[in-house]
Design a protein around this nucleic acid. Sequence first.
RNA 1: GCUCCCAUCGUCUAGGGGUCUAGGACACAGGAUUUUCAAUCCUGCAACACGAGUUCAAAUCUCGUUGGGAGCGCCA
Length: 499
Amino acid sequence: MKEVRVRFAPSPTGDLHIGGVRTALFNWLYAKNKNGKFILRIENTDEVRSTETSTRVILDAMKWLELNWDEGPDKELPKYAPYYQMKRKELGIYKKYSNELVAKGFAYPCYCTHGEVDKLRKEAHANKFSPKYNGRCRNLTSEQRLQKKKEGKKLVVRFKMPKSGITILNDLVRGKVEFDNFLLDDFIIMKANGVPTYNFACVIDDYLMDITHVLRGDDHISNTPRQIQIYNALGWKVPEFAHMAMILGADGTRLSKRHGHISVLEYMKEGYLQEALINYLALLGWSTEDSQQMFNIEELIKKFSIERCVASPSIFDPGKLLWLNGKKIRSKTVGQIYELFIEWLKYTNNEKIIESWDRELLKKAIALEHDKIKLLKDIPLLVDFFFVKDVDYNDDAVKKTLLSEKSKNTIKFVLIASVDRLKNQQDFSSVALEKCIRDLTAEKGIKTWQVFHPIRVAVSGRTQGPSLFHMMELMGKDEVVRRLNVAVSKFFNFGGKNV
RNA sequence: GCUCCCAUCGUCUAGGGGUCUAGGACACAGGAUUUUCAAUCCUGCAACACGAGUUCAAAUCUCGUUGGGAGCGCCA
């Protein structure tokens, strides 16, 4: 059996987005599953829109996703290099095959200007045909060509599509798809600037790189018959094709900026885990027989297959991604989450957030909030109150829990009593603290929540947080007593202010 | 407009002629637990786009309709 070789071929004209990642992922999974090679090729033939920055961003995103390539930029195999199409263009690779096609009569120079082609297109449209170039330069004599050349006309090279018959695509996910050749026009394979077009470069490179399977989005399906015709003209074997359905936004249209985050980097910045994004994207357009939801990467590799990819498009659901991310985080140990968090701070240049934080205290705080973390960026919001000198009291929390008209006096009394008890508390473990406070409520005949809630707010400034006594244990006696005293004097010792 | 693709709960999907009163997951609602918010567990809500045909039998096969998507560039 021939070694499976698949590729992901992004064009560096922007960030790597969700749809691109899914395509990359499926190629990568297929390669790993078949013990084959995953190749990264940069299709930068759009000289206007391609940028080095974008190339960098895509490479970084691929690295963050851990979709490592066996061959590609920074990992060039002499046999197949280079992996940038513009570098290949410099080597004359495309020119060579373009000349061959012209020599064999499968392609021809065309001297039509943009304006002329536009006109033809409009005419075709008016005649209810698919817009198409009518092949007016197809049968130019060599004299006419010479004449055009003398006039200094720029030329492009067009491929001669058969005027009749059908082109058949046997797609791995869609089965047999037929295209009427008559409806396909003579498309350009070499632009006037000597750069190949996508449809041409793609075929040449896939062939030269020994690509065995082309897995890509189905927005490419109508390009496929053109590409198949090039393979045929050159006498090359056509690779296997598998067109995956697209990922759409909530409104059912193509995923775009207005559907929220679309760039992978934005998910990274939000604190999504690489593995959560991978797991979620694997579920879009692929499934196992038992509808398994959670996978680790090894399982995905083992279970992935093209046969189980669906042909219908799917809608991107940020809610499920978020759930999956929380699930993945919860499945990790505190140590792992801490490391991930530190890494995330570095990636996002947010290290200053925890600059003054005690790392051991941070780890323990993360442990307390372990089950509540959905995104890495949540962590500071969840535990920051442990590290502040002056508690940031939430207005609503204070109003509701500390200064409620009905029980203000009880609360003041309770807080002062608590300080008294806690000051003399030898054992500051959560268990002992709970007993201590419960005893207090029992003695004074107060409901537990009437004490628990005020203490929570007094000590943390908010109504939500970790389990109360664990939180107090972690803060330590001195800090708890200090914060309680601060709260009492701040909210209850200035009668005039808070009446 | 033309070509191609697609069609099961709101969403991702399982199912591929009888085992389907259609299964799982997210979301949503209710409950349990709890000092709060979560997490967790339980329960519930909720779908075969429509119409013909084939067949003893159709979510499943065929055709049509409708709806959605993609492509129709010297973009990829």
